[in-house]
């Protein structure tokens, strides 16, 4: 019939979607199913054969010391980076939004770490925090504080990596908050002023914060997701050390899967990681829904 979008031309639609669907099946859906299946086996690359072991890999996880450490470290890392980088991002956004001058400069300055290659900056941080030559310790020295081996000490390595993570992510969160702030109608502030809330903190609590609330929840979930994917700094600087003090989930998966080729075990770890992502994604979808209704 005559040209009408959407009218019974299924073959054209399938022609258009075929390459993408093929790619998604080959590189996402298929592999995800494969991981789920492999997590039920004791397969090790190079082993003569693999056996179906049911949920044994999962049952063994709670007793696996490395897994427990990695999970705990990942959660601690997330528990530090998320609140600090979110609150810092919010503070920076509020400051930048109301800056009398240089808004573009400040925004770019805080966003620069997001753009920079993490691995390269990790190497820079490693040097800056070098126990003897690093400028950070030289700076502490001038204040009369003894040099610290931030990255080489089990007690400080994770907080130090978290600090780098905060430096990396605060600008990203700031940009999301800036977008949220921009969507608050000017009239609301004028209305609040007419209604008697005209001091800065009154404005913040009556207008900004309630309207930014949905954005805040959204940014928290995003920040959690990003912090659970921490890998680059660990792989580049500490390799999980010293004494596994910076072992995180993705690094464990990487080592078990591609260092020791314990495919079954690594697949089970991957499924745990995926489960975490799914939970956060569900929360995120709920929040996105809420955000739409809020408007």
């Amino acid at each position: 019939m005559t040209g009408k979008p959407g009218g019974g031309r299924g073959w054209l639609a399938w022609l258009l979607i075929a390459p993408a669907v093929l790619g998604l099946v080959l590189f996402v859906l298929g592999p995800t199913i494969a991981v789920a299946v492999m997590s039920l086996t004791d397969w090790q690359l190079g082993a003569a054969e693999a056996a179906f072991v049911g949920l044994d890999n999962y049952a063994a996880l709670p007793g696996d010391r490395v897994f427990r450490i990695a999970l705990a470290n990942t959660l601690v890392y997330g528990a530090i980076v998320t609140p600090v980088s979110v609150l810092l991002g919010l503070g920076l956004a509020l400051l930048v939004e109301g800056a009398p001058a240089g808004r573009t400069f400040f925004r770019s300055a805080f966003f620069l770490p997001v753009v920079s290659t993490t691995v390269a900056m990790a190497v820079v941080w490693e040097f800056l925090l070098h126990p003897s030559m690093g400028p950070a310790n030289l700076l502490l020295g001038t204040l009369g504080i003894a040099p610290q081996n931030f990255l080489g000490h089990a007690g400080t390595v994770l907080p130090t990596l978290a600090a780098i993570g905060i430096w990396e992510n605060a600008g990203f969160n700031m940009v999301l908050f800036l977008a949220g702030l921009k969507s608050i109608p000017r009239e609301l502030y004028q209305a609040a002023a007419v209604d008697g809330a005209d001091r800065p903190w009154e404005r913040f609590w009556t207008v900004t914060f309630p309207l930014l609330g949905p954005t805040l929840l959204f940014v928290v979930v995003i920040a959690l997701l990003r912090s659970f994917k921490v890998f680059e700094t660990v792989a580049a600087i500490t390799q999980g050390g010293p004494r596994r003090a910076s072992e995180v989930l993705l690094y464990t998966i990487y080592q078990e899967g591609f260092g020791f080729f314990r495919i079954g075990h690594a697949s089970a770890l991957t499924m745990v990681f995926l489960a975490g992502l799914l939970v956060l994604a569900l929360v995120q979808i709920r929040l996105l829904d809420r955000r739409v209704h809020y408007r």
Partner: peptide
Amino acid sequence: LVFGLVLFALLVPIQVTAIPIFL
């Protein structure tokens, strides 16, 4: 169905699919 596949794939990062693709 296709859109469902897209939404699912949106959730799955390379870290999840890496092992089978590598193999």
